[in-house]
Amino acid sequence: MNDAAMIWNLFAGVLIGLAYLSAFAFVAGLTLRLFLYFKTPVPLKIVQTPGPKNAPGVLARMAGDALIFPNLFQADKALWLGAWLFHACLLLIFVRHSRYFLYPVPELVIDWQAISIYAGFLFPIPALYLLWRRMASARVLFVSGLPDFGVLILLTAIAATGMLVNYYARAYLVDVKAFILGLLTLTPVAPPQHPVFIAHFILVCLLLIYFPFSKLLHAGGIFFSPTRNQIDNVLYPRYVNPWNEEVRIDQNR
């Protein structure tokens, strides 16, 4: 085996390690975090008025929150449009990518290809708008930290490398899929020798590792927001706070 091949094998090994590390960080981190939210008690009802009066109402409210961001629409129409396009593109791109992870590939995903492909072209527009807004508005700049820019830049970089792999520096899909399926079935094979694909892949791994530690937790956390996921029935029946009894009120006099 010559040196180049040895270095490549080593690199492939590191890449596979990174892939598993990031998958573990993402799955374990996200599960533990959401589990933490789940088991943390909600002492008092703090439903946002006007609140839903029953469980289907809560479901509708949360589906609305996840799909069309009604609160943001009330707050800022331009931001709403940017944010909604941003997330809609991410969703379509994610659906499209499921063809690299699933075998057999569902017909629906193949049929959606035609629409999803435009999401990739559209994505940079809302992403750059959000980036521009962070810098152009003094108020938003004031509250923006490094990671707020970092995440947007990372997502834009992932999209850019993805577009390159798809259009200008094509990778051989069969090798890509074999690599991904190998990882998923715990029988890893070497990745395709394609620098742009590898860059795309590494960036995604970084995103996955960072995800459960960051504000990106809003993806799952939104469903645990007490103002949005409670039924507005604070008066009746009695709502019980699990740690209410621990609070002693006779400590003085």
């Binding site: 374990a28 075998y103 899929k177 399926l181 998923l184 079935t185 715990l186």
Partner: peptide, 23 residues
Amino acid sequence: FLILMLLCITVIMLVAGCVPEKP
């Protein structure tokens, strides 16, 4: 949580059996 993880790995192994070799 550990049990859950083990369960996931088992499922992955089962699925792995159904994935064919690359063309």
